[in-house]
Amino acid sequence: MRINIIFYSLYGHNYKMAEAVAEGAREVEGAEVGIYQVEESFTPEIIEKMGATESKKRFEHIPVATVEDLSESDAVIFGTPTRFGMMASQMRAFLDRTGGIWSKGGLIGKVGSVFTSSATQHGGQESTILSFHTTLLHHGMIIVGVPYTQKGLATLEEITGGSPYGASTVAGNGPNTRHPSENELKIARYQGRHVAQITKKLVGK
């Protein structure tokens, strides 16, 4: 049972969330988990001006995703920051290269799930995940979110990301800002574990 996590991250917030998702998925017996990042479109000069050079180095060891990483998986968990209430352009560019897989129905019946981050508490986390689902549905994927058995979704003790649509974190704007909280990481681990459990039932492994 192969579960691939494919993310885009600029300052490292979504990378940390991806690692937590992977940790949860690995708890399920039989799960082989891969982590990939989508190709960066910003030049090194732009990344430097955005103050993200050092952040990028923390996960430069993560391989770049290919469309084969989609077709060879049983489930794919995508992670993207929010850009004006939608996915980042780098993730959109990656998905726009999946027409060949779509024409062959290569992702039909596979599990799809999404996590995200935003600069502010109400910065479009839910709309980003929900609009991302549109692409997954066009591919015929089975969408899995985070049910309310994950109690951290309902906490009123702190500002936190996380919704029934998927894990998320309030990241702040720019480098050296807020890191994912333990509650947000718990939700991300739960999402990874839940996706793996559902996938295991579907593939019968």
Rank of each mutant, 00 (worst) to 15 (best):
130 L>S: 11
129 I>A: 05
164 P>C: 09
175 P>N: 15
144 V>L: 02
173 N>K: 13
187 I>N: 00
135 T>W: 00
167 A>F: 03
160 T>V: 13
143 I>G: 00
149 T>P: 00
191 Q>P: 06
171 A>S: 14
182 E>Y: 12
155 T>N: 01
167 A>K: 00
186 K>A: 15
186 K>C: 10
144 V>C: 03
173 N>T: 13
146 V>G: 02
184 E>N: 08
156 L>A: 13
166 G>Y: 00
147 P>W: 06
134 T>L: 12
170 V>H: 02
161 G>T: 05
187 I>D: 00
140 G>Y: 04
157 E>W: 07
127 S>Y: 09
192 G>L: 03
161 G>E: 01
182 E>A: 11
130 L>T: 15
136 L>H: 01
144 V>N: 03
126 E>S: 07
166 G>W: 01
192 G>P: 02
132 F>Q: 02
191 Q>E: 12
141 M>E: 05
178 R>E: 14
141 M>F: 01
142 I>M: 10
152 G>H: 01
139 H>E: 12
172 G>H: 12
156 L>K: 11
171 A>T: 10
150 Q>M: 06
157 E>Q: 11
159 I>S: 10
190 Y>K: 02
177 T>K: 15
167 A>Y: 06
127 S>A: 10
147 P>L: 09
146 V>S: 03
139 H>A: 09
160 T>D: 05
131 S>F: 10
136 L>C: 10
133 H>W: 14
147 P>I: 03
131 S>V: 09
182 E>G: 10
139 H>P: 05
128 T>D: 08
190 Y>P: 02
154 A>W: 02
189 R>I: 02
184 E>W: 05
172 G>C: 13
170 V>T: 07
138 H>I: 03
139 H>L: 13
153 L>A: 06
147 P>G: 08
147 P>D: 14
134 T>I: 14
137 L>I: 11
173 N>A: 14
151 K>V: 09
173 N>L: 15
178 R>I: 14
129 I>N: 00
159 I>T: 09
142 I>C: 07
176 N>T: 12
142 I>R: 01
190 Y>W: 08
151 K>S: 12
190 Y>M: 00
170 V>F: 07
189 R>G: 04
166 G>L: 09
143 I>E: 04
190 Y>F: 14
151 K>T: 11
137 L>M: 13
147 P>F: 06
154 A>S: 10
172 G>W: 10
164 P>W: 08
143 I>H: 02
167 A>E: 05
182 E>T: 12
140 G>F: 06
131 S>Q: 11
150 Q>Y: 04
163 S>L: 04
158 E>L: 03
149 T>S: 13
129 I>C: 03
192 G>F: 01
132 F>E: 03
142 I>V: 13
144 V>A: 08
154 A>P: 00
148 Y>F: 14
163 S>C: 08
175 P>W: 13
178 R>L: 12
176 N>P: 08
173 N>W: 14
175 P>D: 15
165 Y>C: 07
188 A>Q: 04
179 H>A: 15
158 E>V: 04
157 E>V: 06
148 Y>M: 09
156 L>Y: 14
187 I>E: 01
151 K>G: 07
149 T>D: 15
189 R>P: 04
181 S>Q: 13
152 G>C: 02
186 K>E: 15
142 I>Y: 06
138 H>A: 11
143 I>D: 01
191 Q>C: 05
153 L>G: 05
167 A>Q: 01
154 A>T: 04
142 I>H: 04
153 L>N: 03
150 Q>F: 03
168 S>A: 13
179 H>M: 15
